[in-house]
Amino acid sequence: MPRPVVDGGLVALAAFDVWQNLFFWGATSSQLAVATLACGALLFRRRFPLTVFLLTVPASLLVEMVVAPLAALFTLGDRSCSRWLLAGCATLSAAASVVPWPPSGIASDDRTWTLIQFVYLLAMAATPVLLGQLVQARRDVGRQLVEIEERREHEQTLHEQTVLARERAQLAREMHDVVSHQVSLIAVRAGALQVAAKDVDAREAARTIRSLSVGTLDELRHMVTLLRASGTTPTELTPQPTLADLHRLVATSAIDAQLTGDLPDGIGATAQRTVYRTVQEALTNVRKHAPGAIATVRLWHHDTHFGVEIINTPPNRPSLPLPGSHLGLIGLKERAELLGGTLRAGPTPEGGYVVRLRAPWEAE
């Protein structure tokens, strides 16, 4: 059902709840004003749950109402993760409903009944809070299950690519070490025969064999290069990533990420791949370990060094342990060391995480 329809129906139900109480007991202008404000505020309960709840407290003091406070508490329980805040709001709602207004002396006999009524109202106020927490937990679990499934598919794809690359590398070694060696021998023997042969036809045949052998060697070298290249399919030759691919990487990272800064176009190919892989691994870790976090990728350079910094905010929802090789940062440090640089990674004081790559210009 569309949200405007649900919100409109909820406001109408809350207004009816207030109207039937004011109809029997009468209403002053102040009671009517606070009740109208509380009911109308329900339209904004999803965007400002705490503010909407606080607007229902004065109405609960002056008017007997049930729907508006409970709806506000449910939305607050669905949107907030602070249990102390939720407990305090439930207690405040129960106290506002049980305490007489304006304040007046309560007889000793009434105090016991007031306490009993407060306990019952507190239990009633806790019910929508717990239901809201249940809905929030269900939504979070569903989101985490989707992330786990996506991560499992990603890991499966990586595994398949690793197996494929291993088989291609093994086939390339066999072709290089066995077939190429034998064809090279044929070319050498044909060349020797071409020089030593007396007969013209024999020399021509040897020249043809040698020419074909050399051409075959060139084809074999090309095939070995293709087999050793990383690809998702046996016939695909994937180009190595460059700095130009960073924008697409950040845009398709499935997280809230922003790329700032730049690096000169003349940076070496190895350094470009290292920067790209560092950003790729860092964004993957953010998506895996910090769901809901915001990431910033900052490229920088000065006279002697260049690098990249990837920093993310704390996650806004809990994460589940996902499968992984735990070797990503180790591989990045090895890449940085090959450039003569360093890679540092660790938590930030704000509760996020940062990965910093720094390398000298000589690394180009």
Rank of each mutant, 00 (worst) to 15 (best):
A15G: 15
Q20G: 13
F24N: 14
A38S: 07
A41K: 04
L43D: 06
R46M: 02
F53C: 10
L54H: 05
F74P: 01
L76D: 01
L92V: 13
W101Q: 13
P102M: 13
I106L: 08
R111C: 12
I116R: 12
L121A: 12
T127C: 06
P128A: 15
G132H: 00
V135A: 11
V141E: 13
V141M: 14
G142R: 13
L145W: 10
R152L: 14
E153K: 06
L158Q: 11
V163R: 08
E167C: 07
M175H: 11
V179I: 10
S184Q: 04
S184H: 04
L185P: 02
I186V: 12
I186L: 11
I186N: 03
V188R: 02
G191C: 10
A192G: 09
L217G: 07
D218W: 09
M223F: 14
P234Y: 09
T235E: 11
P241H: 08
L246G: 08
H247C: 13
R248V: 03
I255W: 08
A257N: 11
Q258T: 11
G268N: 08
Q280L: 02
W300N: 09
F306K: 11
I310A: 14
R335G: 10
L338E: 04
G346T: 05
P347I: 15
R356F: 06
L357I: 04
